[in-house]
């Protein structure tokens, strides 16, 4: 790597750390080609803030009908990566290839509309999309929030707001859904329901899903792949593989790694929904697999 750009210089530096700090052992050789089967394919995304490295040569691919979960500690660059994939983040290096006219539905992490702005759910859904009321209620029904259609946004509960935001993301029939920490501010049962809903949407619409999660010990069962981000992609794979990856344990601590679980929304909702370790219900014993089963 002898490039003269600042991004390359920073990369060399980071790579140096990498050798003794990261057990993942993947190499950051010459950039790989874009994955042409993917909806969106990113190579070598690099972002600097001042002289701090936020993203270090990150590669991401999301395929149609695939659920990819992005996890990482606070400050690991999750939101920057999401912004880059959405095309609203200037980057210092890297390239993103999207299928032609890729429509992305986006559910932001925070949504605190000013109470001085009166707006009903129907109006919010129709902002920028001229859709008849029947379409609006159909999308709301799909996410289980049809009764909210004439409510003011400021009157919604956390769970209702999440569903309305999801409906907003779906209204333009996207091929890719990007959800930034969708379960924030939702209680545990609501969280399980929301994950079930996202799984249903994937099955019904065949869309790709990128799910960002701060919840390090509970990852959605239907995730096809988990990407573990800490400035660079530390490890990736099916949820159980990632949970046992040494890099994952190093990042989040053995305790979190032991508590790692997956939602199985079909049955045993009770297990681990409170987030605590329930002996015998999580960890290796729960590996007699039902993850990824068809809906």
């Amino acid at each position: 790597m002898t490039g003269a750009t600042p991004a390359d210089a920073a990369h060399d530096h980071a790579h140096h750390d990498h050798d003794h700090d990261c057990a993942c052992g993947h190499d950051h050789g010459p950039a790989k080609a874009f994955d042409t089967a993917a909806l969106i394919s990113a190579r070598g995304l690099t972002l600097l803030r001042g002289d701090r490295l936020i993203l270090d040569h990150v590669d991401v691919d999301i395929h149609p009908g695939e659920i990819v979960t992005l996890i990482g500690p606070n400050g690991s660059g999750k939101t920057s990566l999401v912004r880059a994939l959405l095309g609203v983040q200037d980057l210092n290096g890297g390239e993103i290839s999207r299928v032609e006219n890729l429509k992305i539905g986006y559910v932001p992490q925070r949504f605190d509309i000013d109470r001085a702005l009166p707006m009903t759910v129907a109006r919010f859904l129709a902002l920028g999309h001229k859709a008849p009321r029947a379409t609006l209620s159909a999308v709301l029904a799909e996410v289980g929030a049809e009764r909210c259609i004439d409510q003011q946004l400021s009157e919604l509960s956390g769970g209702e707001l999440q569903r309305v935001l999801l409906a907003r993301a779906l209204i333009a029939n996207p091929e890719l859904l990007v959800l930034d920490e969708p379960v924030r501010g939702v209680d545990y049962t609501g969280e399980a329901d929301l994950y079930a809903l996202i799984g249903n949407l994937r099955a019904k619409r065949g869309i790709g899903v990128l799910l960002v999660s701060h919840d390090l010990h509970v990852v959605m069962a239907q995730s096809d792949r988990v990407l573990c981000l800490n400035r660079h992609i530390c490890c990736s794979g099916v949820p159980e593989t990632v949970a046992q990856h040494p890099e994952y344990m190093r990042l989040f601590g053995p305790e979190t790694a032991r508590n790692f679980g997956v939602y199985r929304h079909h049955h045993d909702h009770a297990h681990g929904l409170d987030g605590r370790e329930l002996p015998g219900s999580h960890g290796p014993s729960s590996h007699n697999h039902d993850h990824g089963e068809p809906l």
Binding site: L86, Y106, F111, I113, F124, G128
Partner: peptide, 19 residues
């Protein structure tokens, strides 16, 4: 008016949607 309203509702969402 429409873009101003969308930015007031949620600037990042508006940007992501092309405003």
């Amino acid at each position: 008016w429409q873009p101003l309203l969308r930015v007031a509702v949620h600037e990042e969402l508006a940007s992501a949607e092309g405003v």
